[in-house]
Nucleic acid binder design. Structure first.
Lengths: 230, 230
DNA sequence: GAGTGGTCTAGACCACGGT
DNA sequence: CCGTGGTCTAGACCACTCA
């Protein structure tokens, strides 16, 4: 019983939890108990238990001790790859076409999520992303030119807007929203599917401090799945 | 300049990265440099930098030092709440109805994802989840009775199958797949929407060690969105 | 080979929150 | 109050990888 490393101890304790050594909600041994048992420092046990807590498997409270969560939180780390990477990872050739690029003083249509002032300047862009020259995803994007003035003159021939922004513009926080959309006529035509097809949809808004940077909606071609481990 | 705590240092360094103090891919100061600068132990800096690395903002290599990632990984922690909690959090009353409960020797239709043997016993279940008595999501589930024999006799009147399994059955790993489905006639009827409506779809398979436990597909009623911060 | 991050230790003090 | 987890320190050794 000696892999006195934090990950070794973490997995050992995880197995004991799964095996049911402590029932749901029951108090587990304290850090010092485990430290004695595994013959290591308390710090090492602490790190292992903190990892399990951040996974939602156990709950820890000062003085209250450590307990097995009665109802574990189901959570996963979801990586949202760049479209280019998604396409290339599936062995296809990536390309993109700017479908529509405009600029307007913000009036009506700017997504509420961005919370822009009516007077702000913003830029609207539609891009079609292709895999082996077949439609893969359709992108609608607003960019707040007050946050990213350089975007106005960016050359998006090589780099897509998405990649340009990721490379150039950091952000401090954002929000993602996943949903399903029934393809309207224009969308169906752009993606080469039939009217009313169900499209997996990802919307993302990012902020730099409190200033909206960009809002984007990706409509993925029919049949797309976003897979990830849990 | 002295909150010599790992989170304080982490946020301070994050701000400096966002402010552009080091350009993309450029080498940042080492742990000992930061430790001197913030007047703290190297361990504390290490913890701060490891957190930033796990967020995908920086890259660290032994001997190679720490660098700002040229193309940060977009990732988020996605919490998948229980249906009951989703409904109750939106201020509605939750209920569910078992639509169909069967048991069969596994023959053809068992999802490939579960990787069950043809001879195994499994249980199939359909559940309609309601919010204020209106359809919220439709669930199709397979349960591997060889992994969870108790499920066969479980009383699912109070607790839904999902909650019963979460409470009773731990799992070691799983896979989630998000997609969009066009409602067929039966689905549309169950969810009270029109034929061909776009439904947000979540499929999840879980394993205990190498043994499949359950495979479930949730079809959410039209208009559902899964939101999370990034 | 040498510099960097990865990790462990032993000890200390603190903060929260049950009793 | 006082036990528990949360965190910091100073020092040490190791492992990777770049030059």
């Amino acid at each position: 019983m000696n892999s006195a490393t934090h990950s070794g101890i973490r997995e050992a304790i995880r197995k004991r939890i799964v095996a049911g050594e402590w029932s749901l909600g029951e108090r587990m041994p304290g850090e010092m108990d485990f430290a004695r048992e595994y013959a290591c420092a308390r710090t090492t046990v602490n790190r292992a238990l903190q990892a399990l807590a951040s996974e939602g498997i156990i709950e820890r409270k000062r003085k209250g001790g450590t307990r097995v969560r009665p109802m574990p939180v189901q959570q996963a780390r979801l990586k949202i790859p760049l479209l280019r990477e998604q396409v290339e990872n599936s062995g296809c050739t990536y390309s993109h076409r700017i479908a529509n690029r405009g600029q307007r003083r913000t009036t009506a249509p700017l997504p509420k999520r961005m919370g822009l002032t009516e007077t702000g300047r913003a830029c609207y862009l539609e891009t079609l992303h292709l895999a082996d020259n077949k439609p893969f995803a359709f992108e609608q994007r607003w960019v707040n030119l007050e946050a990213v003035p350089e975007f106005e003159d960016a050359d998006l021939g090589q780099l897509s807007a998405n990649e340009w922004l990721v490379r150039t513009m950091p952000f401090t926080n954002g929000e993602v929203s996943l949903s399903a959309t029934s393809a309207g006529t224009a969308l169906a035509k752009a993606l080469g599917t039939s009217d009313g097809a169900a499209l997996f949809t990802l919307e993302r808004t990012t902020w730099l401090d409190k200033k909206a940077v960009t809002n984007v909606i990706f409509y993925y071609a029919s049949g797309y799945r976003l897979d990830f481990p849990i």
